[in-house]
Lab assay of single mutants.
Amino acid sequence: MDPFVVLVLCLSCLLLLSIWRQSSGRGKLPPGPTPLPVIGNILQIDIKDVSKSLTNLSKIYGPVFTLYFGLERMVVLHGYEVVKEALIDLGEEFSGRGHFPLAERANRGFGIVFSNGKRWKEIRRFSLMTLRNFGMGKRSIEDRVQEEARCLVEELRKTKASPCDPTFILGCAPCNVICSIIFQKRFDYKDQQFLNLMEKLNENIRIVSTPWIQICNNFPTIIDYFPGTHNKLLKNLAFMESDILEKVKEHQESMDINNPRDFIDCFLIKMEKEKQNQQSEFTIENLVITAADLLGAGTETTSTTLRYALLLLLKHPEVTAKVQEEIERVIGRNRSPCMQDRGHMPYTDAVVHEVQRYIDLIPTSLPHAVTCDVKFRNYLIPKGTTILTSLTSVLHDNKEFPNPEMFDPRHFLDEGGNFKKSNYFMPFSAGKRICVGEGLARMELFLFLTFILQNFNLKSLIDPKDLDTTPVVNGFASVPPFYQLCFIPV
């Protein structure tokens, strides 16, 4: 058959498939802009700032609406009420993970971030239990974070109060905490193996944040037939998995079943207990991918939040002064901060919360999916439909947070200066898919920041009023603009 005829037939089939998918069930789905064949609503979305586009569309179609990214149908949730109703009140029905062709290629359905069903539930339950087990290797997770915080302070001392970009050092600290939990080992910041790991993690975040990856996920045929950065992403992930597998083999040879040292040991012990169960989800494949998931999810998000926190503290020296006064009063100079201190430091706690609220790190979270046909607000959402959640619409709700575009710790303080919780605080998402490392991340943010401010004054290279804190939105995360500062020993 003539190649031209084959091409026309293929394009015609794709067009018909697109029209059929977009028209099927439209009477039951939430409203939304009319999609174009094949490309859907992509032309109506700013790929570099999806969150802003969703906010604009919500003003037209309401808090629940339908979009098509290519052939992929998505239902968008915008605003606290619908997000709570879906992710919390109907948590089980909305607990699936959205379709990610690239991740599915890399992870093969294993791990904790992109798995679904029984596998996801069992691996998540085990990971939560293990991360909360403060007795691994007779050292609590808090001990590990405190140790890394001391190392971080010593690295900052080496800058000798000269101007520096904190990106690298602030990236090393949370990565080392995860390494300590998974591998029972922290690395020197100049260790070549550690630097290679950091390089792969950072490069992957840069790649994932590009519009090209959005295109690959919406048109998965590209993955096999086109060159691009997605190939580098898959190569980096394969490198990390190979490295983790080597460490798993080392653990198998040296493990003491009665004295687990780290996450890998705990997983291997669980595998041993379930070795007679042919349906067990505790396999080497799941261990390797879960460890890679924890490394990827637990490094860049925390380091970016820390980097943004220091920029905001530079911009608002009056806030920094209040935090340091609270540190001096509650902790002093002669001991290290600990998590028990947080309950006695409402202002510092409010500042950490406000940093996370203000920066809105992951504006749309990772997409969910419905696990069955769901009736939601008089609409029928078919099983498997991807759910896109606007966390921006919750964290920047102007009824809950007056002047949401302003950095103001009073958003989390009552009139008496006591810490005030808010149900709208969802930087880790909400419901059954809430970030498994939430507790660890909150511990790291509090301890790293208090250790830094206990030991250093922060000095800006320019007038604080002239510092730009506008986030650089890159399609996946909101990151701070480049800046330098000086760490002046107190």
Rank of each mutant, 00 (worst) to 15 (best):
G431H: 02
F428L: 02
C338P: 01
L380A: 09
G171S: 14
F267E: 01
L245I: 13
I222K: 04
F282A: 04
P480S: 07
F451T: 15
F482G: 13
G91A: 13
K48L: 08
E300Q: 12
F219N: 06
A161K: 11
H368P: 01
G416I: 12
R73I: 05
T469A: 13
I244S: 02
K190T: 13
P33T: 00
S51H: 11
G298M: 04
L366V: 11
V355M: 09
K273W: 06
R206Q: 14
C435Q: 01
T392H: 15
T385G: 01
V330H: 10
R357E: 00
I223N: 07
R108D: 05
G298H: 03
A309Q: 02
K48I: 03
L391N: 00
N202R: 14
M406F: 11
A369H: 08
V352K: 01
E274L: 08
S95R: 05
I169Y: 11
K249C: 08
I205S: 15
K270S: 07
E81A: 11
N455D: 07
E272K: 15
V319H: 10
R342T: 10
Y308Q: 06
K158P: 00
F94V: 03
Y68G: 05
D46M: 05
F376W: 08
M255T: 05
E250M: 12
F183I: 05
P63E: 13
N259M: 08
I434T: 11
K84Q: 10
W120Y: 05
L43V: 06
I257A: 15
K235L: 08
S51I: 03
L312W: 02
Q356F: 13
T299V: 12
Y80G: 04
S162N: 09
S460D: 04
G439D: 15
G79H: 02
S18D: 15
N423T: 13
G27V: 14
A369C: 11
N378Y: 04
C216F: 14
D265K: 02
D224C: 05
N176P: 01
H316K: 07
F407L: 03
I362W: 11
C435P: 03
I181Y: 11
R97D: 03
I452D: 04
R125T: 12
T34N: 11
C338R: 09
G25S: 12
Q146K: 11
L201F: 08
I39A: 08
S162I: 09
R73N: 06
L391W: 03
R105G: 04
L9T: 14
H368I: 03
E92S: 09
N116D: 09
Q214H: 12
I359T: 09
F187W: 09
R261F: 01
P427A: 14
A103C: 10
F219R: 04
V76Q: 00
T167V: 07
D143V: 08
G25R: 13
G98N: 08
I88E: 14
E285S: 13
L170Q: 00
K160G: 14
K190D: 10
S58Y: 06
H344L: 15
P3T: 13
S280M: 06
N455V: 05
R139P: 11
K28L: 12
G437C: 09
F114C: 07
